[in-house]
Design a protein around this nucleic acid. Structure first.
Length: 1044
RNA sequence: GCGGAUGUGGCGUAAUUGGUAGCCGCGUCAGACUUAGGAUCUGAUGCCGAGAGGCGUGGGGGUUCGAGUCCCUUCAUCCGCACCA
């Protein structure tokens, strides 16, 4: 009998649980290591094979670090608040806590089956009052803090009040909503409400009117990262822009620190870049433009102060508050109409119409501060209120959007930057704007002749001197909207007195989520919490009815794992000083602009107030790739695309020696393919319409002096290799006379065939990626499609025609994200059932580099399963009886083992788990060949495989006669002397090409090696009559003989 | 449009500093044991070629004794951001 994984895995999972093997406590005698997975949102679908990929990797790393003598913190918990459970509650009336609990239990069961080494005593759930007490506590600290730009950290709002009392805003440099100036006397004269309003301008958690993403279907606002393509990420409902009073976190105060911090952490360059883009720092200048005949000015932000002389008009965002006060009476009606049109457009419409130019003139003029020229002020929605000041100076010559706008509304265009050595030209005649990042200033008075870089600096200096502007750094990052009009989230520890919000006393925490009768908004549109009875403080003040967003609970959870049972503090100093920060964080890259930036902000704030001892939460991060599913499809072949594809293939691969351009435009006409050099047009046309268009095209060809070839799309069916077309194109290039087109008759349906092991060939002769319409969006009814989907798993082939006998449906598959709606979800439970957890663990690692996305393909799992059994057989004899030898190990056996020790150490450190699995296979193959069953080899081998296949290892460890757990053992010591060789087999190259091997003692000098090498019969044969020019000898690497 | 990646056999991949391209596994083929094989074991397997040998890391060019690796250029695919002034 073979290895019985079912029995063994169950046995050790129980043993580990009953013996608290994974429990971890502070141990000052050991170095610590904190390795963390992104905790999951427990959805109803349970885990799929993509989830455990990161968990398995971190589990292996954690177990390895433990063997290496570290005290490893490796916890797990649940991001338990979230929309799906609440949507379900609205539909069914089931309390989200019940749904969540059920899902958590399922997740836990699935995770336990895979044999993770989490210390479950440290589990956290964001919806647990004992946990969210500290989320609320952190919120109160944010509410009671402001950000001092001088000390560059958060400080107590009480200090700010003291300052106001002493000196007002004199000398204050703090992050705030809008600039404020008042004296101590004025402060003291304010009413409490007024003072509270002033403080609100500085608090790090503040309430303000703000433009939000409002999702009517979900009945809540959403953060920018919760919206994609104008739709909500959860649910896919439309989102509109709307001004509402919301809680916000002043994350912008930390923009610079968030940016700088990226330099200190070991994250992938791509995710750092995502964050840099999100923060969007740009250095430029803010300039004030006076308005003609008015006593007001407009502030604009520009990164290109140098182009000021080229500013020929100004543009305001439709939401800009100054619009109504500057618009002239003649223009008022038009402006108001435009503004209301622009405001009422959905985000989706706006995005779809980015290329369309729209705008309206206000009738007002700004004054160019240097030339004194009057420049018209327009309103247009290509300027966004959310960025900079919501107003720009437009320099059409050097900005494509300004250029398009100027063209459309016939506004003047002045060139101010020229390529070095080139004279300025009449910009009003240009076809497109000149993106002048480098060049020389022209038409710009005192800037003329300067480079762009010099001109920017000079201009900023000049502007500052004149007092009409100043150098300024601008960030794209917006403050994070922190309230949601939902039920299933943390209640705010806030009550209202006299209309102003106040924080609850910390002793009142946690403020527990009340139970309510239904989970939807009230009839009057209040958030669900307004349904709660007695939702007031003891004194009767009303409590906040908004709840916190999903990222509230996940922003500081890694800290809580350090001290999860502590009800008196967020974390004890002792725990924090010991565990410090997360050493290795593993999770998906999709949280780049959400959780990962909020967490960094949250942690920096906690660092400022002395709760966290490190400025950054996650020192090193690995983003595991997504495991994609294989989805089988039925396709309808799009012959037009196929013809285009084949034609392109012919042009590309046939190496015709001339260059064809795709989608080439001549004037307003667009051609499929165009070769300028030879004046050849190739067009792809439907057979039925070919005759009609042929004449038209011949005229065009004549007009342009071109030759034309029309390819009937049915050509692809009768001429699979496109030989005919190849010939015609070649003839055209050679200047031969070729008829513009030939009618192709289709006599019978094309023969389709399946080559089972050539993906892509399944649906047509050549591996063509035809543009294909997924059938369920198209003609076929869903039932039939579904049936096919399942039939397709065995590459069963289907060939159909529709009612008119026209389109042809074939099958194939594609790699997609795994999702229930795509019928392609692979569930780990089934695989554990069939192959065991250890096989699943090894296979997920063996699939390829952790960070790479890869399609899930179960075919290869057999190989890993075979390996596991082969590994088992090393320890057993033909009768499956354990059988070990106490003989000393041979040199070969030790060499094999120690090669593996080194490889595993090196590769685990660089998170290359797939190569470690491969190294195990090599070692086991070698030991099997050596028929090795020595304890001296097998004991260390058992320890070494335990991070990967813990159940198997634990069983074998006990079979080897031990009574303790393999988890608590020491990783074997690498001994170099076992792997060093006396000889090295040199590859000998002649002119860089390897020709033969030569085994030589490693003690030889390069000169000796050269002497021997050139004298070998093999070398002599290759040198033949040529002479040796040079011999390169790299010791223990290569010998290269250069002959000539 | 901007930014980040990635291109190696039929497939997943390996090659850590420029030094034997294709390790390991899947698949395939052949053989052994078998009543049987979707079990197990053995061998072969980049392509072309009977062989000698030639060609091969998306394409083109360069540096080098030597390039998957470095440089230039080009093509393709994936991901992120996107009227960001």
């Amino acid at each position: 009998m073979d290895y019985n994984f079912n029995e063994v895995e169950k046995k050790w999972q129980e043993y580990w649980r009953d013996n608290n093997v994974y429990k971890v406590d502070i141990d000052n005698n050991k170095p610590k290591f904190y390795i963390l997975d992104m905790f999951p949102y427990p959805s109803g679908a349970g885990l799929h094979v993509g989830h455990p990929l990161g968990y398995i990797a971190s589990d292996i790393y954690a177990r390895y670090k433990r063997l290496k003598g570290f005290n490893v913190l490796h916890p797990m918990g649940y991001d338990a608040y979230g929309l799906p459970a609440e949507q379900y509650a609205i539909e069914t009336g089931t309390h989200p806590a019940i749904t969540t609990e059920k899902n958590i239990n399922r997740y836990r069961e699935q995770m336990d089956k895979i044999g993770f080494c989490y210390d479950w005593d440290r589990e956290v759930r964001t919806s647990d009052p004992r946990y969210y007490k500290w989320t609320q506590w952190t919120f109160i600290q944010l509410f009671n803090s402001y950000y001092c730009n001088v000390s560059k950290k958060a400080q107590s709002i009480a200090d700010l009040v003291k300052r106001f009392e002493a000196q007002g805003t004199e000398g204050l440099d703090a992050a705030c909503g809008k600039p404020m100036q008042f004296t101590a006397e004025q402060w003291k004269a304010m009413s409490e409400k007024e003072q509270q309003e002033v403080m609100m301008n500085y608090r790090l958690a503040y309430l303000a009117d703000t433009m939000v993403n409002w999702c009517p279907q979900l009945g809540t606002v959403l953060a920018n990262d919760e919206v994609a393509d104008g739709l909500s990420v959860r649910g896919g409902f439309p989102v509109v822009r709307k001004t509402m009073k919301q809680w916000l976190l002043r994350i912008t105060a930390y923009a610079e620190r968030l940016l700088e911090g990226l330099e200190t952490i070991e994250w992938s360059e791509s995710i750092k870049e995502v964050q840099r883009n999100w923060i969007g720092k740009s250095m430029g200048a803010s300039l004030f433009f006076d308005i003609a005949d008015k006593d007001i000015n407009i502030e604009v932000f520009t990164t290109r102060a140098d182009t000021l002389f080229g500013a020929t008009f100004m543009v305001l965002a439709p939401e800009h508050e100054i619009i109504s006060s500057i618009t002239t009476d003649e223009q008022r009606a038009a402006v108001e109409e435009y503004v209301s049109w622009a405001k009422n457009r959905s985000e989706r419409e706006r995005m779809a119409e980015v290329k369309k130019v729209s705008g309206v003139f206000t009738g007002a003029y700004g004054i160019n501060p240097f030339t004194g020229a009057k420049i018209p002020i327009w309103v247009a929605d290509y300027v966004l209120m959310g960025y900079g000041t919501g107003a720009i100076m437009a320099v059409p010559a050097h900005d494509s959007r300004d250029f398009a706008f100027a063209r459309h509304f016939e506004l003047p265009i002045i060139q101010v930057v020229a390529k070095p050595g080139e004279e300025p030209t009449d910009a009003s005649q240009w076809e497109e704007s000149f993106d002048a990042k480098e060049g020389v200033m022209v038409n710009s008075d005192f800037l003329n002749g300067l480079s762009v870089k010099e001109a920017i600096a000079t201009m900023i200096q000049k502007v500052e001197e004149k007092g009409i502007g100043k150098g300024k750094t601008n960030y794209r990052l917006r403050d994070a909207i922190f309230s949601r009009q939902r039920y299933w989230g943390e209640p705010f520890p806030i009550y209202y007195k006299d209309g102003m919000p106040y924080a609850l006393d910390e002793s009142k925490l946690p403020l527990e989520l009340p139970s309510i009768d239904a989970y939807k908004p009230t009839e009057t549109g209040e958030p669900p919490l307004a349904r709660a009875k007695n939702w007031t403080t003891e004194e009767g003040y009303p409590l906040e009815t908004n709840t916190m967003p999903g990222f509230a609970g996940s922003s500081g959870y890694y800290l809580r794992y350090m001290d999860p049972q502590n009800d008196n503090e967020f974390i004890s100093k002792e725990a924090n000083n010991y565990w410090q920060q997360v050493d290795l964080y593993i999770g998906g890259a999709e949280h780049g602009t959400g959780h990962l930036i909020y967490s960094r902000f949250w942690n920096k704030f906690l660092f400022d107030i002395g709760v966290a001892c490190k400025d950054e939460p996650f020192q090193k991060m690995i983003n595991q790739g997504m495991i994609q599913g294989r989805t089988n499809f039925v396709y309808r072949v799009n012959f037009e695309k196929m013809a285009e594809y084949k034609t392109w293939e012919v042009i590309k691969d046939n190496k015709l020696g001339v260059k064809f351009v795709k989608d080439f435009k001549v004037g307003h006409r667009k051609f499929d393919f165009f070769c300028q050099e030879k004046n050849i047009i190739i067009e792809i046309k439907k057979v039925s319409s070919l005759e009609k268009v042929a004449d038209a095209y011949e005229n065009i060809a004549k007009e342009l002096g071109c030759k034309i070839l029309l390819i009937p799309i049915r050509q692809v069916l009768v001429d699979e290799d496109f030989t005919d077309v190849k010939q015609k194109i070649q003839d055209l290039i050679d200047g031969k006379d070729v008829p513009a087109y030939e009618e192709v008759e289709m006599l019978e349906a094309p023969r389709l065939y399946v080559s089972k092991n050539v993906p892509g060939r399944e649906y047509y002769g050549d591996p063509i990626r035809v543009d294909i319409n997924m059938v369920h969006n198209d003609v076929l009814d869903t039932e039939q499609f579904k049936q096919w989907r399942f039939d397709l798993n065995d590459s069963k082939f289907i060939f159909e025609q529709d009612k008119d006998g026209n389109p042809i449906y074939v099958c194939g598959w594609e790699v997609e994200k795994m999702s229930k709606s795509k019928f392609n979800v692979q569930n780990p439970d089934d695989l554990v059932e069939k192959y065991g957890a250890d096989t699943l663990r090894l296979y997920e690692m063996f699939l390829g580099p952790l960070e790479q996305s890869k399609p899930w393909d179960t075919q290869g799992i057999e190989g890993v399963y075979r390996f596991i059994r082969k590994f088992w057989r090393l320890y057993t004899d033909e009768n499956n009886e354990f059988c070990f030898s106490d003989e000393p190990a041979t040199k070969e056996e030790l060499k094999s083992l120690h090669k593996l020790i080194k490889k595993e150490e090196d590769d685990i450190e660089r998170i290359s788990f797939n190569t470690v699995v491969s190294a195990f296979m090599i070692c086991v193959n070698e030991l099997t060949d050596l028929k090795c069953n020595k304890r001296e080899i097998l004991e260390p081998l058992t320890i070494m495989i335990s991070p990967y296949a813990p159940h198997l290892a634990e069983e074998l460890w006990h079979q080897l006669g031990h009574n303790d757990s393999v988890v608590t053992q020491k990783y074997p010591e690498f001994v170099e002397s076992y792997v060093v060789e006396n000889n090295f087999t040199y590859p000998v190259s002649i002119n860089g090409k390897k020709r033969f091997d030569l085994e030589l003692p490693i003690t030889l000098s390069p000169a000796e090696i050269e002497k021997i090498a050139v004298a070998t019969p093999e070398a002599i044969k290759w040198i033949a009559d040529k002479s040796i020019k040079k011999v390169i000898v790299v010791p223990k690497k290569i010998i290269n003989i250069v002959v000539g």
